[in-house]
Amino acid sequence: MELLLSIILGLMILGAIYALFARDLMSALISCGIVGYGLVICFLLLQAPDLAIVQIVVETITLLIMIAVVLDSSREELKEKKAAEVKLSHFRKWYVMNVILIIVCLVVLLYFFKEVTSTLDPLGKHLTRMSTAYIEYAAEKTGSANLVTGVLFDFRGYDTLGEATILFTAVIGVLTILRVKGKK
């Protein structure tokens, strides 16, 4: 199980790296789709069918929006300066500084990652501490056969209300930004 997930995650990382370095924005977006649809497979393997359904719909819509934006504007990636044009002296001046900064950042991030994951259970050994009550009483208290929707719409209904508020705000924001007649 862990091996299979690791392989899919490795493919997702490759897709992500290609998405960041592609010259054409359209191929960058499509390899960003690799990450999203790989995540769908991972959700199915992790026994989360609701998440898989929602993720496949949302990923498709996201790709459609971004492809529409790219088709409406330019597909070309920005021209970077060629290596010969970059001043070597300027590069050397900051070279040591940059390397030290990167190493320090990586060490700090990895340290905190290790601290955080040491408090977690290893994969598959999770104890449902808080959700034990949810699993036990969800059927009789909410009447929902699907525990995820039971938690989402009943035990944590206010979260969903906040989510609806954020969606509404985002729609208003998009409408305001894309309004044809702007104020001069």
């Binding site: 808080m130 949810y134 995820v148 989402l152 979260d159 969903t160």
Partner: peptide, 9 residues
């Protein structure tokens, strides 16, 4: 089910 509900949001 709890992390799944959170991720769904």
């Amino acid at each position: 089910p709890l992390p799944q509900a959170i991720v769904l949001t």
